[in-house]
Amino acid sequence: MPAPVIAGVDGSPESLAAAEWAAREAERRDRPLRLIHALDWHPARPDGEPVDATRRRSALRALRRAEERIHGAVPAAHVTDEQMEGPATAALLKAAERAELLVLGSRGLTGLAGFLVGSVALGVVGQATGPVVLVRAEEDAADEHLPAEGGGASTRTGHRDVVLALDVKDPCDEVIEFAFEAARLRRARLRAVHVWQSPPAFGLGPGDIALVDDPCRAEEWQGFVSAVLQVWRDKYSDVEVLQTVVREKPSTALVRAASGASLLVVGRHLTGRPAIVRTGPVTHAAIRHVGCPVAVVPHH
């Protein structure tokens, strides 16, 4: 059986939006959809004590609400569900091990005012060994598509760009392939964005003075981007690619590039130490401030 797309459901508006997005993605990928609700232990109880009936009923209601929303948006979706006992982060990480990708709301019911990403989502993103997509509560199907001729929302128009945060100094096949495949599935354009910054003058050696010439440096980065992407252009010849080189603060550039996108794809280095929660400053900024769904793809 093919690995499913899994959505974490906790009854929050974010998780309902995530479940619907996951259903659309499962349909695009021709994968089954599985909903997971984590039945967290109460802090005052010893680990392993059975969850009480009230919380099981609450979990069942959350799952049924998600299924109703999914079938309203994707009537043909094949959905199964599961209640998992244990701390939410650990349960979702375990579920992600058997998933094509895991989809979560960017903030759950326990999110604190002023924070855009809850602790569970951050914990999962920082430790998962497979792709995790974060979705905001306001996300709906029309947000993935270009506006209609009159400017109104539509699901009948083409998809908005998929944006890839590309680091040509450390290009990662897993991240690049995920972005190209996402663009192919949507018949969307892929926009690859590489961000660079001028080196400080005090860090230049005697033979490096040419690096101060920003136009020449930008052209050089464009060449690097073209070289990295060429093999993927050949493999995904049906995907239109736009490459952009920006001299700016990386987090600022990505937030701007993802404005109006259907999906932003960023990478995360695997640390080799599963207990370490690490996203990196650019990825962390993206999942906090970008408005479209963000796919975080781990890589070595």
Rank of each mutant, 00 (worst) to 15 (best):
Q230P: 02
Q230S: 06
Q230R: 06
Q230H: 02
V231C: 01
V231H: 00
W232R: 10
W232T: 15
W232H: 14
W232I: 07
R233H: 01
R233M: 02
R233C: 08
D234H: 04
D234Q: 11
D234W: 00
D234F: 02
D234C: 09
D234A: 07
K235V: 05
K235P: 10
Y236T: 08
Y236L: 07
Y236G: 12
Y236V: 14
S237Y: 04
S237Q: 10
S237W: 03
S237N: 06
S237L: 02
D238V: 09
V239T: 14
V239M: 08
V239E: 09
E240T: 15
E240D: 09
E240A: 15
V241S: 05
V241A: 04
V241L: 03
V241Y: 07
V241C: 09
V241K: 05
V241W: 08
L242M: 12
L242F: 00
L242P: 09
L242A: 09
L242R: 14
Q243F: 00
Q243D: 15
Q243S: 09
T244F: 00
T244D: 12
T244P: 01
T244W: 00
V245A: 04
V245G: 12
V246N: 08
V246I: 12
V246P: 04
V246G: 10
V246A: 10
R247F: 04
R247G: 12
R247S: 07
R247K: 05
E248L: 01
E248T: 00
E248K: 05
K249L: 07
K249E: 10
K249P: 03
K249Y: 10
K249R: 13
K249G: 14
P250Q: 00
P250H: 00
P250W: 05
S251K: 11
S251V: 14
S251M: 07
S251W: 08
S251L: 04
S251I: 02
S251P: 12
T252S: 13
T252E: 15
T252W: 10
T252I: 06
A253Y: 03
A253R: 13
A253L: 01
A253I: 04
A253N: 10
L254D: 11
L254M: 14
V255I: 15
V255H: 12
V255Y: 03
V255T: 15
R256T: 09
R256H: 13
A257S: 12
A257M: 12
A257I: 08
A257Q: 11
A257L: 08
A257P: 07
A258F: 02
A258D: 11
A258G: 14
S259F: 01
S259G: 12
S259V: 01
S259K: 15
G260K: 05
G260V: 05
S262G: 06
L263G: 09
L263P: 13
L263C: 11
L263E: 03
L263D: 06
L263I: 08
L264D: 08
L264T: 12
L264K: 11
